[in-house]
């Protein structure tokens, strides 16, 4: 494997997103949403203004769970199929580069663009709020940003995998939307449905572990269980196995959600 080839492709992808202002646009969306949530998130309770970082993060988590997977899927769904459909893939592959290097280059370039806009977008909010935050709060917020990046990377990995499997861009975009629906909207409902249908008799202990089969849920657990206030607030601590609240374990699961789809993509792309 030649790192230089990966870097060449990655830097092209990254600078493409900088130049067409994709990074700027996404960063601004994140900043705008985060500011609104930080100041008006508690409006339903009748107060306006920044309250606590924990509550702000809890609200941001709900937003990020919808938004980041969508952005990552849109960013990555045509990574390979787009090149193939446009007809530029043959030329790229005729270079002294392996398919794995090309795939990783694409992934890292797009992941860098996504990470950059996530950190810039939410980071700007941290700077605005910095006067009202202590060190511990900043630490929590940094954890939230890092896990958002990981969430984006996981869905980007899924998107790149789809882009290898799909026959054309149209199908790839369909698959991307289906993936978003499945993980962000349907998955939890299915689990909940299963729980209700079986009356909690069956699989009640297994259920929390099934949440690990969804990167969006891993992200939710990672953020909510790292915040003591929120944990008690949601009354979740009692139903949740403490082993799963280990942020390192959850981080590892998230990493697996990045590595495994990429591995499958690479296997398929070589065929």
């Amino acid at each position: 494997m030649e790192i230089a080839q990966i870097l060449t492709i990655a830097s092209k992808e990254f600078w493409d997103r900088i130049r067409n202002r994709w990074v700027l646009a996404v960063a601004l969306v994140f900043t705008a949403f985060a500011l609104v949530i930080a100041y008006f998130g508690a409006a339903q309770q009748g107060s306006v203004g920044f309250r606590s970082i924990d509550v702000t993060i809890a609200s941001l988590v709900s937003l990020v769970i919808y938004l980041v997977p969508l952005i990552a899927l849109v960013l990555g769904f045509d990574a390979i199929v787009g090149e193939r459909e446009r007809g530029s893939l043959d030329l790229l592959l005729s270079m002294p580069i392996t398919r794995l290097e090309l795939l990783l280059g694409k992934y890292f370039g797009l992941a860098a663009a996504l990470a950059f806009s996530t950190i810039a977008g939410f980071g700007l909010v941290a700077i605005v709020l910095s006067t009202q935050l202590d060190l511990a709060a900043l630490f929590h917020y940094a954890g939230f940003m890092l896990s958002s990046v990981l969430l984006g990377c996981a869905f980007l990995s899924l998107a790149v995998m789809l882009s290898v499997f799909a026959a054309d861009r149209t199908r790839a975009s369909g698959l991307a939307i289906a993936t978003w629906f499945l993980f962000v909207l349907v998955f939890d409902l299915l689990l909940l449905g299963a729980l209700v249908v079986t009356g909690g008799q069956w699989g009640g202990e297994l259920l929390p572990y099934l949440l690990l089969a969804n990167p969006a849920d891993v992200f939710r657990i990672l953020n909510i269980f790292s915040l003591d206030d929120v944990r008690t607030l949601y009354g979740l601590a009692t139903v949740f196995p403490p082993a799963l609240a280990d942020p390192w374990l959850l981080g590892l699961v998230m990493l697996a959600w990045i590595v495994v789809p990429l591995g499958i993509a690479s296997w398929r792309f070589r065929k």
Partner: peptide
């Protein structure tokens, strides 16, 4: 390649 496609941007 036939009908070479390059990057428009």
């Amino acid at each position: 390649p036939e009908n070479v496609v390059l990057y428009d941007n």
